[in-house]
Simulated assay, not measured.
Amino acid sequence: MLSEKMQEALNAQINAEMWSAYLYLSMSMDCAAKGHKGVANWFAIQFREEQDHAQIFMNYVLARGGEVKLAPIAAVDTAWESPLAAFRQTLEHERKVTAMIDNLCRIAEEERDYATANMLVWFVNEQVEEEENARGMIEAMEAVEGNKFGTYMLDKELAARVYSVPSPLAKGE
């Protein structure tokens, strides 16, 4: 059974994951509108992944006998100066999400909630990957900045990115 404090923190994380999804959907739509279809695809996949992260948390709360309390999602930006600017905001945002996951780990430790601590290990590892991916995209965008052919090729490469179901959902957890 989840403590009230942990349940509230997990519900806040669910809302944050849904906000992240909304942010990445907005980035995808902005990039698509500006002709960056590959970058739009990259962000569309991020949108789906963030929804999956929220679902993993919701499944966990329910599995522990808790109550999922969905809250309104705050507004997000709707336009970015460039795909590079969007990726820079992505890294900044993912760092905030990492801090939130770390906070959940602290609460689990304080509460001696080992089941939640164990579940959170997947998210700790996922955040390392999320930050690494965002940094890699920034480096790639900076490398081709001002080079139309390079930008075209990078956009084409990003169009090939495919969605993968996160392992906790693939296992039916």
Rank of each mutant, 00 (worst) to 15 (best):
E49R: 10
D30A: 09
S26N: 07
S3T: 14
S3I: 05
K37A: 13
L84V: 03
K148H: 15
Q7H: 08
S82E: 08
E94G: 07
N103H: 11
I56A: 02
I45Q: 07
A44I: 01
I107N: 01
L169K: 05
E173H: 13
A159Y: 06
K5E: 15
E130N: 05
A79L: 08
R48A: 11
G150W: 14
K34E: 15
A108H: 07
E94H: 05
T90I: 01
V144T: 03
E110G: 00
G66A: 06
N133Y: 02
E129S: 10
S28Q: 12
R95F: 00
T151I: 09
L70V: 11
D77V: 14
M141K: 07
Q127L: 10
M29Y: 12
E17I: 02
M153L: 15
A9I: 05
T98S: 11
F47W: 14
R48G: 06
Q89V: 04
Q7V: 00
L91V: 08
T78P: 00
T78M: 15
A86Q: 08
S20T: 07
R64E: 09
T151A: 13
E50F: 01
L169V: 05
T90G: 05
G66L: 04
H36F: 15
E67H: 15
K96E: 10
M6I: 02
Q51D: 00
A117V: 02
V121W: 06
E92F: 07
A99M: 05
M137V: 06
R48K: 10
Q89K: 15
M141D: 08
A54H: 09
N59G: 04
L70P: 06
E145N: 10
A143G: 00
S3Q: 06
N118D: 11
E81R: 13
E67P: 11
V76F: 04
I45A: 06
L10E: 07
S164W: 04
V128A: 02
W80R: 10
A159K: 08
A134L: 01
R112S: 12
A71I: 08
Y163A: 04
L10W: 05
T151S: 12
P168R: 04
T151Q: 14
A71V: 09
T78H: 12
A9V: 02
G172M: 11
R112F: 04
R161A: 03
L25D: 03
